[in-house]
Amino acid sequence: MSKETIDRKNVGVSQEAVDQMITTRILSNDNVQFTKTEGGFLSLKSDGKEYARVKVLRLFPFTDPERYISVRDHNDKDREIGVIEELSAMSKDTQDLIHEQLALYYFTPQITKIYSIKDEYGYAYFHVMTDAGECKFAINMGASAVVRLSETRLLITDLDENRFEIRDVTKLTQKEQRRLDLFM
């Protein structure tokens, strides 16, 4: 039986609401207008509707960070408004605005240098240089604090669940890699 023949009028939930729940709306340059609010958030005008505060999320934060950005209406319990398929296809302004929001939302310093890793009583103490500056943090060895996202990529979570990332282990020196051997 096809969808159209089902009479939903009796049931009370609007066809529109159901459609919204089951279809993905693609946002493109033609139907969106992002602006930054005075409070520092993003607002969106799209297809005649205005959203005072929207939230942007990556659907594939590790494997495809620049594509499939989900845009959500903060004032309506983060309901999805639509998905930006390709961020680079959006206007320059939009890209900048969204990148700014994403940078803070997914803030994860990239480790560029490992000064030392000390492993003691179930904790490992890291002293590293990141793209955001020099950091010292501790992780719990028993937990899965070091996750391998791929063969060469590591995500490290400290005791407070702050995140640090090593994009490419092979870019580190041999010595630094050996320090990581404990986790590889």
């Binding site: 904790y123 103490y125 890291f126 955001a132 500056g133 020099e134 950091c135 010292k136 943090f137 501790a138 400290d158 005791l159 407070d160 702050n162």
Partner: peptide, 13 residues
């Protein structure tokens, strides 16, 4: 300016 050059997170010191 940054006052602290090195970020020290929980548990390190």
């Amino acid at each position: 300016k940054r006052v602290e050059e090195v970020r020290v997170f929980k548990g390190y010191a």
